[in-house]
């Protein structure tokens, strides 16, 4: 009889169930009050940074997102890491050669805050194509913590999504896919510099509204019609409905442009592979930053 290999791996991460006590209005109001404390400066490229420009942030953000996806990190890790990155860059002038180190450090910290089994220093260094050494990462961790004043409990759009979903008249089966779509929009916003100044509650509301729109859930319930939903969510987050509408439109156009870019990227990648060009072994070539 031949030897057979059995794969007995199972998902070993045990999750706590959603605590319904945390979905009450007192918590929501506290989060709305707290979120402003964690907003980065929207004009740090002009006021603080001498070398870093928005394009570089985009490149490092895309790399960070790919690492988080490949490592199957919790959904909040990436937006939280981007919040740390922006807050750091709001106060500390940084050389462009250290931007990837900073990105890795922010993922390292966000992962420790949100995951049961966080990313290791060693693994993150491998993702930088070993351009960052573990010792540097640990030094940078301490520097980042000091610049962030050790306050890592940033309010993120993810914290709001659950509150909004709990308030919407949507069937449980639809909620799952709606949550997934909204989370995708949140990640997309985190990669884009135009959303740096937007409060997490606004991004979350815009993402949920865009997801409802995209999934055509509005046809199932009049409460979910574009107008009604925007009015309802803007009341919940105590914001102007027009602001929320424009945020939603921005998110939708960001999705369109990123889909276009993805299409172009696929076609150029195909050409490059045909021409047998050497590809970087990191998910996105962050070495471009130094150009």
């Amino acid at each position: 009889m031949e030897h057979q290999l059995f794969c007995c791996e199972v998902d070993t991460i045990r999750r706590a169930y959603q605590d319904s006590n945390l979905l009450n209005d007192r918590v929501l109001q506290t989060m709305l009050k707290a979120e402003e404390n964690y907003l980065p400066s929207p004009n740090y490229f002009k006021c603080v940074q001498k070398e870093i420009v928005p394009k570089m942030r985009k490149i490092v953000a895309t790399w960070m997102l790919e690492v988080c996806e490949e490592q199957k990190c919790e959904e909040e890790v990436f937006p939280l890491a981007m919040n740390y990155l922006d807050r750091f860059l709001s106060v500390e002038p940084t050389k462009k050669t250290r931007l990837q180190l900073l990105g890795a450090t922010c993922m390292f910290l966000a992962s420790k805050m949100k995951e049961t089994v966080p990313l290791t220093a060693e693994k993150l260094c491998i993702y930088t194509d070993n351009s960052v050494r573990p010792g540097e990462l640990l030094q940078m961790e301490l520097l980042a913590l000091n610049k962030l004043k050790w306050d890592l409990a940033s309010v993120t759009p993810h914290d709001f999504i659950e509150h909004f979903l709990a308030k919407l008249p949507i069937h449980q089966s639809s909620k799952q896919i709606l949550r997934k779509h909204a989370q995708t929009f949140v990640a997309l916003c985190a990669t884009d510099v135009n959303f740096i100044a937007s409060p997490p509650s606004m991004i979350a509301a815009g993402s949920v509204a865009a997801a409802v729109q995209g999934l055509y859930l509005k046809s199932t319930d009049s409460c979910l019609s574009s107008q009604n939903l925007t009015n309802f969510l803007s009341q919940v987050i105590r914001s102007d409905p027009d602001c929320l509408r424009s945020c939603q439109e921005q998110i939708e156009s960001l999705l369109e442009s990123s889909l276009r870019q993805a299409q172009q990227h696929i076609s150029t990648e195909t050409k490059r592979v045909e021409e047998d060009v050497d590809l970087s072994c990191t998910p996105t070539d962050v070495r471009d930053i130094n150009i």
């Binding site: 420790k112 060693e122 990462l137 961790e141």
Partner: peptide, 9 residues
């Protein structure tokens, strides 16, 4: 080897 312990943080 992984910096500040997760629980401390």
């Amino acid at each position: 080897k992984d910096g500040i312990p997760i629980s401390s943080l």
